[in-house]
Write a protein that binds this DNA or RNA. Structure first.
Lengths: 193, 193
DNA sequence: GTCTATAGCTCGATAGAC
DNA sequence: GTCTATCGAGCTATAGAC
């Protein structure tokens, strides 16, 4: 039952965020009875925190899969940019970054911080490697570029949702691809323009 | 009194979003009495919609001020990227793009859509101009680059808030600056690296 | 135009039987 | 471990006096 509660919480957090995720809805969705939620978790927040830890792990694994390989660094960055993303559903963690109750609770916010810090570190390392290999122009600081790319994906979700247009996020990542190609030395450009 | 109600709504929408903006809080903040809200506006949503129209106008004006001048196009884009932004407070419109009730109401969402469409159009036009002047490499489609830049700013807010670190958004825009410089032909680079 | 009072609902959480 | 019942609070909105 604990598993069903967590799965229901994960689904509701994705669909509506933390503040809309009511214990009642979790119970309905999971098929659990009223008593069982507060048997397995002391508070709504504890349930959400446990759910977000799992989401964090899932998203980190997915990022490590593309960014952690031994392919040429810029290809890994391109592969990360090209990951399948549903612009209208939003990022499962990033969508929570505007909720007062999430930002006000270290327990909840740490899932977001853990994920973003990990992705930023992976991208920074990958971009540094590209720079060492002389595949990336020196003017760009890897940490700044990493922040730019992660932000771009998160903002792509925002744009897609605000304009109710699934295409916006891929337009944004395509734009990022172009900029990255322009910042790459020609020796590393294996893709067609 | 209508003005005070709108100002209170604008402040609350910025601080906590639409779903947290309760009529009670609007009344407290504005100093108005209970009856006056529903005298001036039929519903909470109508009040929020009116407030968001004003916010949209303010943000559009600010974007037009930097992007609409007659300076060299890439300088205008750089000036827009360099605008002062409080990463921890979030974008007054973009922060609403994850709220179910906002996305589910055309009345509310249209403020977000209006703003983002306008900024995308301005940036696309400016980048097209840069391309015509041969100041920007041809591989980049202006509409894609515009989406990338707007997304990057919106995602910068997300990162800053998720990591509780004001610097993230400026790190992201600095990274964008680097990428833009790399995509610019050297003839247009007036800034030091 | 603004007041007080309150409707009907959902919220997060708890009590106590089984 | 799960059940039913319910608490006190806040929610959006309405009623009716002034």
């Amino acid at each position: 039952m604990r598993t069903e509660l967590l799965d229901a919480a994960k689904a509701l957090l994705w669909e509506g965020g933390y503040e809309r995720m009511s214990p009642r809805k979790v119970l309905e969705r999971s098929g659990a009875g009223q008593g069982s939620l507060y048997h397995h978790f002391p508070t709504k927040r504890a349930l959400a925190a446990a759910a977000l830890v799992e989401v964090e792990r899932e998203l980190v694994e997915s990022a490590e899969r593309v960014l952690g390989g031994d392919a040429p660094p810029l290809d890994r960055v391109r592969a990360w940019l090209a990951l399948e993303r549903n612009g209208l559903k939003g990022c499962r963690l990033g969508r929570l970054a505007n909720e007062v109750e999430v930002l006000g609770s270290d327990e909840l916010r740490s899932a977001l911080a853990g994920y973003f810090n990990r992705v930023l570190a992976l991208l920074t390392a990958t971009l540094s490697e590209a720079k060492e290999r002389n595949e990336l122009r020196a003017s760009a600081a890897p940490a700044d570029l990493a922040a730019a790319l992660v932000a771009l994906v998160q903002g792509g979700y925002v744009l897609s949702r605000a304009l109710a247009n699934e295409k916006l996020i891929s337009r944004a990542t395509r734009g990022a691809m172009s900029l990255l190609d322009a910042a790459a030395h020609s020796s590393s450009r294996s893709r067609s323009d």
